[in-house]
């Protein structure tokens, strides 16, 4: 593959995958290999977060359509789908933040116990990556309105790969953090 931007992002997400694997290992370790009981899981609302997950997955879908439109030259369609992607991503973040606030009100914080620590660290780093992705998407979106349109075309492959990675990581995080306590 000679598109060095896409290649760079692929290697970057491979590297970040190791980072998230490490955080997930910490979470799974505390959950399964220690005698501690999980106090956070009982307070998690998997249904609510599941709905917000759908928003994130939806944003990946709209991004796919947006990229296709951009490659075909339909700039209006591209702008529409890009705006949708950013919106859906932002909705997901709002969901995360309100969930954090809810947990905080129940006195579940980073330092509650080992599950509080690992939950907030894992989901927090994921949220940070989502925010960075939203910023990147917004830059491409904004630039597409100016005379620097070719920049959008040059950057869409890399940002697209990154955003799908963020989505896939969330699927894994959602499974380990929200689904496994229910099984």
């Amino acid at each position: 593959m000679k598109d060095k931007g896409k290649l760079l992002v692929l290697f970057l997400i491979a590297s970040e995958a190791f980072f998230f694997i490490a955080l997930i290992i910490a979470y799974v370790y505390y959950r399964n290999f220690t005698n501690a009981t999980d106090t956070v899981a009982a307070n998690l609302d998997a249904m609510r977060t599941g709905i917000f997950t759908l928003f994130l997955v939806g944003s990946s879908v709209t991004l796919i359509f947006g990229k296709r439109a951009l490659k075909k030259g339909n700039n209006q369609t591209f702008k529409l789908f890009m705006a949708l992607t950013i919106l859906l991503g932002a909705v997901f973040m709002v969901g995360q933040i309100t969930e954090y606030i809810g947990l905080y009100h129940k006195q579940i914080t980073l330092n509650k116990d080992v599950f509080g620590s690992s939950f907030f660290t894992l989901t927090g780093f994921h949220g940070l990556h989502v925010i960075l992705g939203i910023i990147a998407l917004s830059i491409l979106f904004g630039v597409s309105f100016t005379k620097m349109k070719p920049v959008t075309l040059a950057g869409i492959e890399g940002v697209d790969t990154y955003w799908h990675f963020v989505d896939v990581v969330w699927i894994f995080v959602f499974y380990f953090v929200y689904i496994t306590p229910l099984l």
Binding site: I21, I25, V28, Y29, N32, F33, N35
Partner: peptide
């Protein structure tokens, strides 16, 4: 290896 890791370290668990 990830699965193998899990198998090894779960040997100790209760």
């Amino acid at each position: 290896s990830t699965l193998g890791l899990y198998v090894v370290f779960s040997a100790n668990s209760a």
